[in-house]
Design a protein around this nucleic acid. Sequence first.
DNA 1: GATCATACGATCGTCACTATTCATAGTGA
Length: 568
Amino acid sequence: MDNREIANVFDEIADLLEISGANFFRVRAYRNAARITRDHPVPLSSLTTEQLCELPGIGEELAAKIETLSSTGRLPFLDELKKKVPSGLVELRSIRGLGPKRIKLLGELLEVRDKEGLRRAAEAGRIRAVRGLGAKLEEQILHALAEPAAQQEKRMLYADAEPIVNALLTHMRKCRAATAIDVAGSFRRRRETVGDIDVLAASSKPQSVTEQLRAYGPVKEVLASGETKTSVVLADGLQVDLRVVAPGDFGAALLYFTGSKAHGIHLRKIAQDRSLLLNEYGLFRGKKAIAAADEKGVYRALGLEWIPPEIREDRGEIEAAASGKLPHLIARKDLRGDLHSHSTWTDGRASIEEMARGAARAGLEYLAVTDHSKRLTMAHGLDPKRLREQWREIDRVVAKVRGIKLLRGIEVDILEDGSLDLPDDVLSELDWVVASVHYKIEQNSRDLTRRIVKAIGNPNVDVLGHPTGRLINHRAPGHFDLDEVLRAARGEGCAMEINSQPERLDLDDVMCIAAKRAGVKMVISSDAHHPNQFAGLEYGVNQARRGWIESSDVLNSRPLSKLRQRSR
DNA sequence: GATCATACGATCGTCACTATTCATAGTGA
């Protein structure tokens, strides 16, 4: 089992323990372990018991469970737990108003086992009869059960949320009573998906700000609305949480609501160690606020440099900030070129000339035209003959379009046995070769690892394209031994792509950290199929920043002359 | 379940909002 799978087991245990009424802190220990496991850049199966116990939050008990899972892929403890708790109860957590206590109660008193049982109980009016519950909750439950299932769970892609957030902020900023309006939460941390939108306002008249949100056109439903806190649901299903604080508290509140949760908890612990109290209103010594108005001031008062939101995940950034060793995260302006793009020669929607002009408009100095190879028949992949014809077209565009250099490239398919879809003599004539897996990605880990390592070993290959092949919310990442692939990439001087397509963002943040540790260079690519997709490089940069990536880690932050000088 | 450290047993983040029991428990963030 790899780290992700172990993390999923710990989350499952936490879910089951929670509704079986276990100690709250025991549940939290499992959730914490899940996070640590998921975030760890090295396979836990490669660590000794002592090394596992050194991880903060992992003790003897959890270390033993990690070892059992790594070696056998099973955990008797989980199997036992599953026998005791009906699995249908877990999904009731997605219903607003139902937490562990009430679910346990419903299970015991009304013999509810799943959503269907809950529906029957609610329709029969048996929920309102339970002491502590009432008619309001019963209505709320029926309302939630009537929602289409698809809308309930999925997190929205960052790129899809972006225009919604921008429109919302524009509306909120029209409110005169607010001196500042900003977005916090996972959106501010630039996570690849967002669950809800946290909006923070500074105002001495919270009522006016609350009214501004409630009057927003797209608001479909008001979930809760108090003096300083309001939650609404927009027509597209996205939840918005508004918090209003006094202008003097804005920095502390922004820090608090940006999260992540783990980052905040760690900061508050540092505050405690210094006999201070940190909450959303400020950093206090006794009753005296020593910092609150701006984020930088709060970090400074805790002895820390300001930490960019993208890396606030408690993955070592606080220790780095304490010792002045924060990374200088890459920015969009650092990118000088784009090394993955398509044209109408295969599945792109614009000509090479249009793509070249679009790249120039996006401020890029060079662009690799990397259409598909012949195996990808549905994209009309190129064979050697058509590829050579394409070079003449590239030469024609180079002569015509100023301000951008074009590279002859290919996105060559990695075939099932790890060989490439074009002969070496053709590949060796190209300026830039992206090698990608496009089919049979679901093969077992051993075969997929061998396949990728073999492709990386071809000296013509410059970068591994969208390494895991995942599509967020649609296709799970391919299963391979990341360590082994990174070792091969390091040895062969092959880079890893960070694909900027919003549903790919592949490598993900944790894998970026692993690649950097392994000494592998990266390439942030648009994979643009249309000129308007060069703007999407921003999403790849976001992901890279979340993965602690600096300009020096990224090949296409170099000028073209330096890119070509790299040694293999 | 992990961590700290009067080395066994206490502590683990904090706060707003809602519903119902109208002072408190549960939830959600």
